[in-house]
Write a protein that binds this DNA or RNA. Structure first.
Lengths: 200, 200, 200, 200
DNA sequence: AATGAATGAGGGTTCATTCAT
DNA sequence: GATGAATGAACCCTCATTCAT
């Protein structure tokens, strides 16, 4: 990577970092592009060399951050040497939930903006250096020790269930704190898995 | 209600209607207070006699519209003469889903903004003439033919599951159209109910 | 006219005056709306209460200023008690040319922007208080002591001839100063009139 | 011409072509230098190696395109074997008018920007490879079978008359379509010529 | 209570120009 | 000579809010 290429990457990453920091602290609506470039220390026009507008940088951030969540969770799972598929899914959910508990501003950012559409998008549009959600998905459905009925529906339901229920529980402890809610969530996830997965 | 009282109600309702129509067609971010008052045919200053700002009117609309959804569903349920609690819950979910299918702009509006917080809020702050979600909730938990373990958690999970999964499925048929998704949703709801409800 | 109405008129006129002054001194391209409102001493937003954009205020100014030119010329003509139609036309042309010599910034502004289209427009859209070019045109063609063949073509040719030839001659004395050019212009105008007008 | 020389000429011509195409389709104000270089496929900085700014390239284009008009018209005239001076002038006017009818975007571009000043300029500054309007002018005034009184004034008046009257007539058929206007224009041109030209 | 003219900060975006490579 | 990333001033325009009427 040439010096110039490197410089561009630094600028872009700096913009992404600044945007993320501002989006999570002030919210997207109240963050202006002026804010982002000021925090990045680059000129206003530079922003438009890398992103179309505020929503473009938001979508790229969501894909990136969501991918990171899954990637970290999977790495931990492998380290823990878990091989049973249902256990793997539960582990990943739990790990992600824990990451979000530790990083509530990330939760604020992701949960308000994550949708299945953007998620699917991240399969294709992922930046070159992004760890893609696609890999995890593919490793999951291509296992030969299980037969999965409609894996996409299963994942969709699990993801939506987890991400929608955890939001208010983690951030506001409403209706109950997350630790109290977890057993119910995992019980439901197990049920969903049972419905879709058959060991061979 | 005096003539003056009535006039005020007309103005306020007109503002609410206009705001709803604009929010659902252009989105909240792109709707200005100027747009709302213009559509309502009242003066700009008048808006501030009734609402604090755009987000105030949005929250009131969400409570109101969400309440309506439940109210309609419950009325239909009574008409259908359904008394078994699990069946009641399924019926209400199905009815609401159908309402949202018929009214996708309402779905766009609600789903992007509905959160447990605002929902709970609607229990207290409901406009005087609003049918409150609280009533339905109370009727549900005070039945003497069932024992419900953590009814709030149960409802929370069901509501979040339904509202989060239906959004992308209804609007974009992603990952599958809602009719194909429904069996999986209802199966999961039944599981959740079984976990919480014991017939006496 | 109420106090409020009067205040609005003052603001609008102030904007028109400021715009005219800036357009003639710096040119339209280099005049920004910020410049105009600053010179007027009103807020930026106020501009948009009265005009759509820079080109809107320009067109209104052109109509207005062109109308004034004709109005002054006609008034002088009446004062001079000239009744013969060809002499009237020559008189008006001469008077307008003299006005433009005296007011070269007006010439700069008008000549670069006057087109038959905008001119015709001014017949209809004239501000209420504008003296309309239409009146002069109508008085001219409805005389019963002359028969005019295609009066619109005649006027079009005279107006275009005069306005296009005077521009460079007055401002840059190119190819010759206006006083030297005038005989040729008037000779040509007389020829055009002869071609179109028959005394009865 | 060396290979390098040739390469430079290609770049420059490409910039001129792109600019012309954009100026005529979007207008000068809405054409940016970015647009021009993008269309040309050269880098932004390259533009400044050949032109000072947007108005520099515009003036060069006007000279060039106006020169072309005259050059084509004269070639056709010679081909048609017309030798009588008044007939030559009429022929050239008619030919140019026809060229502009066929190429209305060229008319838009030229008419809004052509002025006697730029025209005279083209006599001196003409690009090396341009056919100069000066040649035509000189051939015209140096004939020994006619005496011309003030040839510059004559040409000035004819050019301004034709270019100003044809604009709205060709583009908007206002006040009448060009074919209907032509007899009046030519009649007036003949009158102007008669006034200036004496056969010897 | 109702109006709507006025505000002016601040938003997003463009673009001519520079200069290190 | 050629490049194109970077600049940042300047642009147009919006809009929530106020307040005299």
């Amino acid at each position: 990577m040439g010096k110039l290429e490197l410089n561009k990457k630094i600028k872009k990453d700096s913009l992404l970092d600044s945007a993320f920091s501002l989006f999570t602290s002030k919210g997207i609506n109240k963050t202006s592009i002026s804010d982002i470039v000021e925090k990045s220390g680059v000129a206003k026009g530079t922003f438009y060399l890398y992103f179309k507008d505020k929503y473009d940088i938001r979508n790229k951030l969501i894909s990136h951050k969501a991918g990171q969540l899954f990637d970290i969770a999977e790495k931990e799972m492998i380290k823990a040497n878990i091989t049973d598929l249902p256990e793997q899914i539960i582990f990943i959910c739990d790990n992600i939930l824990n990451q979000l508990c530790e990083n509530q501003s990330l939760l604020t950012f992701i949960s308000k903006n994550l949708s299945w559409g953007i998620f699917k998008n991240s399969l294709g549009n992922a930046n070159d250096d992004d760890i893609s959600f696609a890999d995890i998905y593919n490793r999951l459905v291509s296992r030969d020790d299980y037969e999965i009925d409609s894996p996409e529906i299963m994942l969709y339901m699990i993801i939506e269930l987890v991400s929608s229920t955890c939001y208010s529980s983690i951030l506001y402890e409403e209706p109950v704190p997350i630790e109290q809610l977890k057993p119910y969530i995992y019980d439901t996830i197990k049920h969903i898995i049972r419905r879709h997965v058959t060991p061979l």
